[in-house]
């Protein structure tokens, strides 16, 4: 798969404060690439550099083979659903979509079709004529996503797209994202929710304090940096804990060596990205 995005030794400083340090990675076409890190890790700054809203202090960004951020081609092929709701509250959903569609160069029948498709994609067709200020937080997030995909961008950047939404809307958004990936969009997904990364992302870059800590698939990260599996069982009214890197073998041994009838409960806890992050950085993901 060709690379949609190449970051080469990207650094960014604000007033002598280093926000991103020598960050390098590539994003392949068609994948969902997760950027996982606590608040303040530099994820949004990195997104702003990729989109051309900010200049990097050092390093190079290459988009779609040989374009720089801010180039007309790059701008026409990037969609951004930012962390803040980039919508006009006094306009209706359809007016927001029409406006941003026109700004992306869509007109006439193409615009109408794109608006219709985007509304359907996020399940807001029946709310098209309602002003955004009357929407719930989840509906606004979905419309925010609809605006980002309106012009069918090659690269879709979703910056914390599920912040502050109810579980139902979160699931709807995540379903939409998987659908977009199936349609061939490349997605960069920034979040500090490891569950979302585990569910959605093909590869994950873990960032902390502006640095890339690790980059791999979810399984790869868990295997390389995760803890052992935790097995917990109760026997003769006593709780027992044990760790293993091969839970099936451990359970088999347990069942063979003891009287199975004496075991009243047994649970296995898988390693998590939270543990991976803790192991790599020494602090919790949500501590920041």
């Amino acid at each position: 798969m060709p690379d949609i995005l190449i970051l080469d030794q990207i650094s960014k400083q604000f007033d002598q404060t280093s926000v991103i340090n020598h960050l390098s990675f590539e994003v392949e076409e068609g994948e969902i690439f997760g950027l996982l890190g606590p608040n303040g890790a530099g994820k949004t700054t990195l997104v702003n550099i990729i989109t051309g809203l900010l200049d990097a202090s050092a390093g190079a960004v290459t988009l779609f083979g040989n374009y720089a951020p801010g180039d007309a081609y790059a701008r026409a092929n990037i969609g951004l659903a930012s962390q803040s709701l980039a919508l006009y509250e006094d306009l209706t959903a359809i007016e927001n979509l029409q406006f941003f569609g026109r700004m992306q160069g869509l007109t006439g029948g193409n615009l109408d079709a794109a608006v219709k498709q985007a509304l359907a994609g996020v399940g807001l067709t029946d709310k098209a004529d309602q002003r955004v200020k009357h929407f719930s937080g989840g509906m606004k997030r979905r419309l925010n996503l609809a605006v980002a995909i309106l012009h069918q961008p090659k690269l879709l950047i979703l910056d914390e797209p599920t912040v502050g939404v109810d579980p139902q809307s979160r699931n709807a958004i995540m379903e939409s994202i998987l659908h977009l990936r199936d349609q061939g969009h490349t997605i960069i997904y920034t979040t500090h929710y490891m569950e979302e990364v585990e569910k959605l992302c093909d590869r994950v870059a873990i960032m902390d304090k502006g640095q890339l800590i690790a980059l791999d698939s979810v399984n790869g990260l868990l295997q390389a940096h995760g803890d052992n599996y935790h097995i917990r069982y109760s026997q003769d009214n006593q709780i027992h804990n044990t760790e293993t890197d091969n839970p099936l073998a451990t359970i088999r041994e347990l069942l063979e060596s003891e009287q199975p009838a004496d075991i009243s409960s047994l649970s296995v806890q898988s390693p998590t990205l939270e543990q991976v992050f803790l192991n790599l950085t020494g602090h919790q993901l949500r501590d920041g």
Partner: peptide
């Protein structure tokens, strides 16, 4: 600018 709509406009084709 504060609501992010400007950022969206700035990275659009306009």
């Amino acid at each position: 600018r504060n609501q992010g709509a400007l950022s969206r406009l700035l990275i659009s084709s306009a």
